[in-house]
Amino acid sequence: MTEAQVEMKTRMDNEANNVKFSTRGVHVFYGDKEALKGVDLDINNNEVTALIGPSGCGKSTYLRCLNRMNDTVDSARVTGSILLDGADVYDRKVDVVQLRARVGMVFQKPNPFPKSIYDNIVYGPRIHGLASTKTEFDEIVETSLKKAGLWNEVKDRLDSGGTSLSGGQQQRLCIARAIAVSPEVILMDEPCSALDPIATARVEELIDELRENYAIVIVTHSMQQAARVSQRTAFFHIGEIVEHGNTEQIFTNPREERTRDYITGRFG
């Protein structure tokens, strides 16, 4: 394929897959330091997009722009356009609380609240008013836990503390918690880096299942993981996207020298 052909195919893919997030020229400054230097990237529905790159390359920063978690850092400043279904998330009219309900997030370290498993799941639906009766909440808890593949393990002890679970279970609880508000996009910031290989496999399986209903963006250190779970991959380096495209293409036939060096382990 020539470059022109690739570009054409990408554009056709975009339209066919119905773009969820369309970001152009995203810059992020932490004080005087420029952490992202103009990133253009599209995130598609029903796909897993993996963001890879050496640490400090800006992939987590980019992820945190999508649900405006950078707002919680006092010194952070974001410019550029980040469109969710065509509407700029940094528009003043956009409500950040609603945005975060539509764009869920799972963190690097499992962070269940120090409450019961049940209360962890219903936290989001409760604050957003997604249900009102006990039956409705029960239903949400059951479905979310089932979707996160945790139901069978915890259905008998929904009242025990979320922190009493093992690390892998905690992370799946956090995923269930994110699902409970039925978001459209799930952002995952290295969700498996604190887990052992078996728990990691479970979560990866789960991510693959979730793809059916959500657009998923995952930041990962592990190139094997990116290759296993994602359909598209973007390679970040020093605040820029070096290359993005189909995961298979990126891993088998990268166009850029830097991508090849990174994938083959020459740096990172």
Partner: peptide
């Protein structure tokens, strides 16, 4: 389409 997972009308 399942009832409790209908996308919320924000």
């Amino acid at each position: 389409g399942s009832s409790n997972f209908a996308r919320h009308d924000w």
